[in-house]
């Protein structure tokens, strides 16, 4: 357990020493969000710029107004959303690169006791495709898990006229949702262990490493480290949730940005602490 805590602490220390990682991750998140919102912004401006409706909406958003937009100005919606989606995909690719970058850099610092910025970029390049492949596998795992759950959910059919009541269906839904969370918890551990092993051994093909990672997923140290990380995430979520009611536009914007920064910290610390504990 002390090794686990030590790893967690070391990951934080690394992050504090390299605050620029967070600045970089935050900066890219902001840039992608700004780029993605660009077409949406011009679409909205085109419709609302000189109409009072936008002020009414800001105070009291009634979702039925969406129908006015769709009915009268629907043509631009598809293009706006496809632009949004393409930036979204680019962000996922960037995140994959960045994760490979900071993990590679941390590995270097574990070996040498120090690290350089250029190692972030070189690790990103070295491990990007391996991490991307891992991402695809994880997406496939989720797809299979969700498909199996859907099959189980609908095992008695969804014909409402055949049901005695909806209670069984709802209990099944909650049970499956809980199961999905539990599986998600273990899939995340597998992902972090697999990433760590890829960074440590830099294999030509990742299948073997992944298999090895799968075997060690259920180790107590991995589970406890994941729990510690999740406790941190839960705390920041809770704090943000309690501050959510703040009406002032700028203040609520700032709070949500801080929340995002802490979520980015969670990502870096989680990855690094797993890397150390996997050594």
């Amino acid at each position: 357990m002390s090794h686990v805590l030590q790893s967690y602490k070391a990951a934080w220390q690394f992050l504090i020493r390299h605050k620029w990682i967070i600045s970089l991750l935050y900066g890219f998140n902001l840039v992608f969000a700004l780029l993605a919102i660009g077409p949406f912004n011009s679409y909205i401006e085109n419709i609302f710029a000189n109409s009072d409706t936008i002020n009414t909406l800001a105070n009291q958003f009634d979702y039925s107004i969406i129908m006015d937009v769709v009915n009268e100005y629907g043509i631009g919606i598809g293009m706006t959303f496809s632009a949004l989606f393409s930036y979204f995909i680019m962000y996922v690719l960037w995140s994959t690169f960045a994760t490979a970058g900071f993990l590679g850099m941390y590995q270097k610092s574990l070996i040498k006791g120090h690290s350089k910025i250029k190692e972030f970029w070189s690790s990103g390049i070295t491990f990007f495709f391996k991490f991307l492949r891992l991402n695809i596998y994880i997406i496939l795992i989720y797809v299979i898990v969700i498909a199996l759950m859907a099959v189980f959910f609908m095992k008695d059919g969804l014909d409402v006229f055949k049901m005695e009541s909806e209670v069984a269906l709802i209990s099944r839904f909650w049970m499956l949702l809980f199961l999905l969370f539990v599986l998600g918890f273990f899939i995340s551990i597998f992902r972090d262990v697999a990433r760590s092993n890829i960074i440590i051994s830099n294999p030509k093909y990742i299948h073997k490493t992944n298999l090895q990672s799968l075997k060690s997923t259920l180790r107590l140290r991995h589970i406890s480290l994941s729990l510690i990380n999740l406790i941190f995430l839960a705390i920041i979520c809770l704090i943000f949730y309690t501050l959510k009611g703040i009406e002032a536009v700028w203040l609520s914007f700032l709070i949500s940005q801080f929340y995002l920064v802490f979520r980015l910290c969670y990502r870096v610390v989680r990855g690094c602490s797993f890397l150390e504990v996997t050594q």
């Binding site: 969000a33 912004n41 609302f48 994760t99 992902r191």
Partner: peptide, 24 residues
Amino acid sequence: GIKSLLKKVMTSLQHIMESVTLLI
């Protein structure tokens, strides 16, 4: 009004993007 709406949409977008990286 536009700024206020965009701020809401943008922060939601930032968090949604980051949430996906939680999963994969």
